[in-house]
Computed example of a mutant assay.
Amino acid sequence: MALTFFQSLMSVVVGVVLWACQVWNAPGAQPPAEQIWFGLLRWLPCATGFACYQVTDHFVSNTASISERVIFGNLVPVLAWSAESTFPHIFKTDREASLSAKAALFTTVCGATFFVIEDPLLAPLGVGACCFSGIVLVAYRLVQRGTLVKTVDIPVACLLAFDSLVSCTIARLLFGSADSAALKDWKLWCETPQVLLLLLLSGIGTGFGHFAVILCLQNCSATLTMVVCNIASMMCLVQGAMLFNEEESQHLMSIVGMFVNLTGGIWYATSQVGASEHVCDKGGHQEHLSTGKHGAEESAQ
């Protein structure tokens, strides 16, 4: 909770700085204060979901193995895809996904399975933590997507600052004795340049990462957003294997699994970009036909 509190606090700073830059660059483009407050009120469930996910994600990091995080992390987009396919009018998605997209999602799950098959390391506590965190993530991402496409029209930097403030507050309320002791050690950590640098980079990375996720959710589905996040996580595993000689990521099947997973993720992202362009072209063509028909009627009159 101490780490969650610090990262959220740094994310608030990142959000405020980005928002200030937006106001300074385009002061006339900002919505009125009343609209911002009303939008933040409607965004409150999303901010609470972000805080809950931050808490569960750190719990998973402390209790689950890499294998558990990989296999369950790649099952989460499948659940999100099922929900978005069932309720396309809520999430602004097509009802029928292409065969290519379905095959790509299946490939990511296969890659995760290959990764864990040689060194499973599945424990009840880790599996339970991953399942709970996955449920929170699916619900949180779907609520975000549904809210963004229907109601909220305020700066993303403002949403970032608000999310981080709620997360910071909840993390502080959940402080235990170990977290209080950690706060007392922060002076020592700040006096160590290497530790201070890592803490700052951790907080700044959390802020910009969440900023990028909100931008993704504004323009594409929750499923695609989570697939892209899984690509980033897999890239972190590749970097860990190369830079820190992590043994669990250097088995033959693990390497094959990482390659297959990355291939499936990039395949799915590419298929969705193509589908989005097709929908946009189709919509533009229909609008052009409608305009032409309307113009012809006016000429006849």
Rank of each mutant, 00 (worst) to 15 (best):
A222L: 07
S82P: 04
V14D: 02
M253Q: 10
M253T: 13
F5R: 05
G39F: 02
V228A: 14
F87N: 04
M258N: 01
L121Q: 11
L122N: 06
S133E: 09
C168M: 15
G284Q: 14
S100L: 14
F259L: 06
Q54R: 03
L75F: 13
N62P: 00
S98Y: 01
D119Y: 08
M253A: 11
Q30A: 11
T63Q: 09
F162M: 08
L9K: 01
L9R: 00
T108H: 01
A123Q: 10
F87E: 05
C190A: 06
S133I: 02
W81E: 03
I71H: 05
H210D: 09
R69D: 02
Q54H: 09
T4W: 01
C52L: 15
E96R: 12
G295Y: 11
F244H: 10
L40S: 02
A222N: 11
H251Q: 10
T107Y: 04
T291I: 11
L200R: 03
T169L: 15
W19S: 02
D57M: 11
S233I: 11
C21A: 12
L44V: 05
R95S: 08
K102M: 12
S254W: 02
L41G: 12
A182W: 00
C190I: 01
T108S: 07
V166M: 12
L142V: 10
K184S: 00
E191V: 00
H294A: 15
A47G: 13
L40Q: 02
T151I: 04
E247N: 08
A178P: 00
A212E: 06
T169S: 14
M235H: 04
T48Q: 09
A182T: 00
W24H: 07
C131V: 15
P45C: 06
G111E: 03
G265H: 08
E246M: 07
C236A: 12
L224M: 07
G274I: 06
E191H: 04
Q144A: 09
S299M: 14
C158F: 03
H89D: 06
S180P: 00
L99V: 04
L121M: 09
Q22Y: 02
L215R: 14
L75C: 14
S11A: 15
K187R: 07
L160W: 06
A129F: 13
E248T: 12
A139F: 12
E247Q: 14
L224C: 08
Q7S: 01
V273M: 11
M226E: 09
T225K: 05
V138Y: 10
H210F: 13
V273P: 02
E34R: 15
G126W: 12
G126E: 03
V23Y: 09
W19C: 03
A29F: 07
L159M: 14
G49P: 10
L44D: 03
P120G: 08
A232G: 15
Y140D: 08
A123C: 02
E68T: 11
Y53Q: 13
D153G: 07
F50P: 01
Q286G: 07
G203C: 05
R42Y: 10
P32W: 08
L142Y: 01
H251S: 14
N230Q: 13
G39D: 02
A269C: 13
A139H: 03
N62I: 00
L183H: 00
S8L: 01
E191L: 03
L252Y: 07
C21S: 03
E287H: 13
N245A: 13
Q144S: 11
Q22N: 08
G146S: 04
Q239L: 15
A47W: 06
K150S: 14
S249A: 09
N261W: 03
V14H: 05
T192A: 00
P31Q: 06
